[in-house]
């Protein structure tokens, strides 16, 4: 493990359940990870796997009928460790952390920005809550932030409304807002899913620069393995509320040990390999979250299922950083088969 001072946030055995219609969805069911300064952790998984709920738990932005049932979320601030899960959701301490220490970028910038206020007003609002700057200084800072995000004519754009921005510019404005207080941790929840690839490349460039210059820890939530390969330092693969495999990007992408990780990698066509490549679909679909299988959540769709998969596999540490939740992680038969 890295020295503790290097770690920005630790999540330990987090369980977040969501309640609807007298039913309980164990959206996040025992998740542990840590995020280091200046590094990017990519959380990857399909829709409904709990990746966004994990982010919402860290920010305490969960829907009303849900709660953190167990586990610890510890934010390692300069002032000492703070247990985020123990803070009241909208208490003063939580609001101070939100935005200043931990900032978040959402998937859809149009719904995340308020349409009736100017972009400048919304950036200045952040600064008003978290700094002691006066109006003039805030305004200058807002213009400066927009300029550093590569928005043309920031002096003019700062007074414009979100609808006057294009999709890519809105996302930049969101990032400007998130970066306004130099947060230690930036959570980006599918920041480029709604954007075109050329705009996505611009946003990624920007995020890389920010990470390098400010040493921000980044938690990037995505469903795109391509994004993982390009941006991640560490990867956590989620399936139905658990991290089934985690490690450095090399470990997970080059030597995947969980059948789901491998199936995910085999199911996407890779640019440049042409028509000769084989892609393998994962049979079946993700289980109903209200009727989960008792053991390994992936067992029903797994080629290597054995009787033991009826019970929940334990997390096994393969190396200092690489861990996997699969009974057959060491089974050579499984991995030889896959190597073919």
């Amino acid at each position: 493990m890295a020295p503790a001072s290097d770690v920005a946030l630790t999540v330990k055995d987090l369980k977040t359940f969501i309640y609807t219609n007298n039913r309980c969805n164990k959206a996040v069911n025992g998740v542990s990870f840590s995020i280091r300064r200046g590094r990017t952790l990519c959380v990857v998984g399909e829709s409904g796997c709990g990746k966004s709920v994990t982010a919402a738990s860290i920010m305490q932005l969960l829907p009303t009928l849900s709660r953190i049932e167990a586990g610890e979320i510890t934010y390692h601030s300069d002032r000492g460790d703070i247990r985020i899960d123990l803070l009241p959701r909208n208490g003063r301490k939580m609001r101070a952390i939100r935005g200043q220490d931990i900032a978040m970028i959402f998937q859809d910038p149009m719904t995340a920005l308020n349409p009736v206020y100017t972009i400048g007003f919304q950036i200045m609002e952040m600064l008003r809550y978290h700094t002691r700057l006066g109006w003039r200084a805030r305004y200058r800072k807002a213009v400066e932030l927009l300029r550093s995000m590569g928005i043309p004519l920031p002096e003019q754009r700062v007074d414009e409304y979100p609808h006057m921005y294009s999709g890519g510019m809105r996302q930049r404005a969101m990032i400007a807002m998130a970066m306004s207080c130099n947060p230690k941790l930036l959570i980006a929840d599918e920041p480029t899913t709604a954007l075109d690839v050329t705009i996505q490349a611009q946003i990624f460039d920007l995020m890389e620069t920010l990470k390098r210059e400010h040493g921000t820890a980044v938690m990037l939530i995505t469903h795109d393995m391509g994004v993982v390969a390009e941006l991640a330092d560490e990867v956590a693969v989620m399936y139905m509320g658990s991290i089934v495999e985690a490690g450095t990007v090399d470990e997970v992408l080059r030597t995947p040990r969980h059948p789901y990780t491998r199936a995910l990698l085999e199911s996407i066509p890779i640019l440049g390999r042409g028509k000769a490549q084989e892609i393998h679909a994962i049979p079946g679909q993700t289980p109903n979250p209200y009727k989960r299988p008792p053991g390994c959540q992936f067992a029903d769709r797994c080629r290597y299922r054995i009787a033991r998969c009826e019970t929940m596999p334990e997390e096994t540490q393969l190396s200092g950083t690489h861990r996997v939740m699969c009974w057959r992680h060491a089974d050579e038969e499984v991995h030889l088969d896959a190597a073919e």
Binding site: P152, S166, G168, M169, D196, V197, T198, I199, Q200, A201, Q202, F204, D205, D224, M225, G226, V227, V228, A229, E230, L231, V249, D250, L253, R254, L265, I268, I270, L271, G272
Partner: peptide
């Protein structure tokens, strides 16, 4: 060219330099 280079590829051995286009369509 720019479009191809902008696409994230899920293969660590195939990482190429991104050609970042400026501005919007």
């Amino acid at each position: 060219e720019a479009l191809l280079s902008a696409i994230p590829v899920a293969d660590l051995d195939k990482q190429t330099e991104r050609i970042v286009l400026e501005g919007d369509v």
